[in-house]
Amino acid sequence: MHSSSRLLCQIHQLIPPKPLQFPATQAPPNPILRRDLTFSSLLLFMMGPLTAPQPLRAETMVITPDKPIVPCVDRNPETGKKAFLDVSIDGEPVGRIVIGLYGEDVPSGSSRFSDLVSGAGGVSYRRKEFVKIMPNYVQNGGLRYYGGDAEIARKTGRKLSILDRLVDELEKQDVSCVGTKNVAKSVSIIVRDPLKPPPKLKLVAREGKLEIGQEEVGTDPNGTEFVITTEDSPELDASALVVGRVIEGMDVVERIGRVETVKENTTSPYFRVAKLIGDKRAVVAERGFNRPYSKVVITNCGLIMDTN
């Protein structure tokens, strides 16, 4: 028998170990801090384990890095179609923004933006203003009316309208993306209103019978407003479809972002009460928040033809 084991046996015969009693609801305290330790327990602690320690398992040493934040669309839009926007602030030209479009990844969104830049549908972004300037992005008001969706759907025999296809592409981006889609320099068109309230239920008469119907509250975006991000803007992911990226003229976008705007006043008790009771003046005031005092206008726009 090993000498240390023989010594322990002799000690146990001379000094029987005192059992330690612990309440059922408490874990045993650290044996080093107890004053009623037996001599054998103390000796075992000082001698340490008699067997070699087990090596660390490999999986406990694996470090999982954070997932990288990457856009879910082509990183080289320079190879696709390009669009340009000439911008003025209070009548003073400030430069040109050149945008590379993601034609293959978002064909409907890219086509929508191309048509509105080139005026293919009879209307364009020319003379349209930037209506909101936020810390992370600037937003163009788009067109108040953009018809043709129903007519195009009827001619092509498609069941989905253009806006439906844009929303479908947005949902596909949500699935395929890692991190935020609206990274800095992204160009996105607004295709959904994440703040739109659900439909109201109401009784309607159909064929002499009362049935429960739904009444839409508010209107959906028409897919013509667009934003250009100056910083990563995850708050846009639920409503904006990324269609391209700024490849030239980011200094022009940043200059737009420095234009003075109407400050938010949502913390005012008067505004909060008016909002709570549904006062229309609160809605009007809220729409005016972050609007630029200066007139920021697209003076000219179009597509850049590739000469290569």
Results as ranks from 00 to 15, higher is better:
44 L>A: 11
210 L>N: 10
56 L>W: 06
193 D>L: 06
254 E>I: 09
234 P>R: 01
299 T>Y: 00
52 A>P: 10
74 D>N: 15
125 Y>T: 06
152 I>R: 15
240 A>V: 04
62 V>T: 14
7 L>N: 14
209 K>A: 07
28 P>A: 14
242 V>W: 00
185 K>Q: 12
124 S>P: 13
167 V>N: 09
298 I>M: 09
115 D>P: 02
241 L>A: 03
169 E>M: 04
25 T>Q: 12
88 S>R: 10
98 V>T: 15
159 K>I: 11
250 M>P: 11
105 D>P: 04
25 T>C: 07
242 V>P: 04
292 P>Q: 10
120 A>Y: 05
149 D>A: 14
94 V>Y: 00
6 R>C: 06
307 T>Q: 15
105 D>A: 10
48 G>Q: 07
263 K>T: 12
257 G>R: 10
29 P>D: 07
82 K>E: 09
18 K>E: 12
117 V>Y: 00
125 Y>F: 13
308 N>S: 15
139 Q>L: 15
235 E>R: 03
8 L>D: 13
20 L>M: 07
173 Q>I: 03
144 R>F: 08
160 L>M: 13
57 R>S: 12
96 R>W: 02
228 I>A: 03
13 Q>G: 10
304 I>M: 14
204 V>Q: 14
163 L>E: 07
9 C>L: 15
293 Y>N: 11
308 N>K: 13
158 R>D: 14
291 R>Q: 15
183 V>D: 04
222 N>H: 02
141 G>N: 06
140 N>W: 01
54 Q>V: 11
5 S>K: 12
202 K>Q: 12
9 C>K: 14
29 P>Y: 01
162 I>V: 15
235 E>H: 06
91 G>D: 06
103 G>F: 00
252 V>T: 11
305 M>Q: 15
158 R>S: 13
42 L>A: 12
227 V>L: 02
100 G>C: 05
109 G>R: 01
62 V>K: 12
287 R>G: 15
86 D>T: 06
80 G>M: 02
66 D>P: 14
277 I>W: 02
234 P>A: 00
117 V>P: 01
32 I>F: 09
284 V>K: 11
86 D>P: 07
302 G>D: 05
90 D>C: 07
297 V>S: 03
262 V>P: 04
94 V>P: 08
3 S>E: 14
269 P>E: 13
259 V>M: 08
89 I>E: 07
75 R>E: 12
152 I>F: 07
36 D>F: 01
